[in-house]
Design a protein around this nucleic acid. Structure first.
Lengths: 141, 141
DNA sequence: AATTTTTGTTGCTAAAGTCAACCTTTTTAT
DNA sequence: ATAAAAAGGTTGACTTTAGCAACAAAAATT
């Protein structure tokens, strides 16, 4: 057991370095990693609200509020007041926002691509199935 | 290929969430994640200097300088001036520093332990070999 | 109807990190 | 040998990132 823990931690250290997980999006972009995450979430979560973002990412709601404000000023999102609940505002990504997001995504893709470009198809498949296995084992509670 | 990239990114997102990689050490401790990393590096890298830390972690040298200063004030490290090069100071961890580091490490262990405590020995072995496989594939250049 | 909770905003603050200027020592180029 | 450049490190000023607490308006609960 002790030995396993050590190996997992070793893998974590390796994997952090390898994937550059700590700055997956940011390089050269005008979005911070957090902002990129939030923009991505607004795009992919239906009827996204400020409080969803705050709960999901465990960020202070004041902080989220300011990021949203900045996004709106930069016209990458717009706020749509809810009809049923007048406290709520649904966040929607604009066309410009989508373009920014696409750019962020393709940069992130490029990072990963560079990491795996010299790996054969066979080994790439093995890589993916190892990842799937890890995910399966760790999620089965 | 495209599909593989997407799967790897999905695994990355999953793994970040699962392992809490972004705050592996910090919880409840008086060390920030960065400080913990730096203390760990001083401990494990022979003849560690400020500039090594700055280059290795890609942190500003001013920032590193201040962290080192704080560490010295708190007596968790000491500076040993180099004989050959009078600009350099080798950083050495003190006994108190070692104790702090042990505590940080055991907290990190606890995190991982909690994550895997309900996993059977068999699956734990499979987990580790999947990790080893990933590491092997990704490092073979 | 009164209270509590939810959703979001704002002012203030602390922590984390960068930039530029600087000093001293060592290395490199002339 | 000497001048210039580079390396190691420090400091002051600053920005970015983030959290806390108080607040307002609307909705839900009692």
């Amino acid at each position: 057991m002790k030995k396993h823990i050590g190996e997992i931690k070793k893998f974590n250290r390796f994997y952090i370095r390898m994937m550059g997980l700590f700055n997956l999006y940011t390089d050269e972009s005008s979005y911070s990693a957090t902002e990129a995450l939030i923009l991505f979430e607004i795009h992919s979560f239906p009827d996204c609200t400020a409080s969803h973002l705050s709960e999901y990412f465990l960020f202070d709601k004041g902080y989220i509020s300011r990021i949203i404000k900045k996004f709106e000023e930069n016209q990458v999102i717009s706020r749509v007041p809810s009809k049923e609940d007048r406290r709520k505002q649904y966040l929607e990504i604009t066309q410009a926002g989508k373009e920014d997001l696409d750019e962020l995504m393709s940069k992130a893709n490029l990072n990963v691509e560079n990491m795996v470009k010299n790996i054969s198809e066979v080994e790439l498949s093995e890589l993916i199935s190892s990842m799937n296995k890890i995910e399966k084992i760790l999620t089965q509670n």
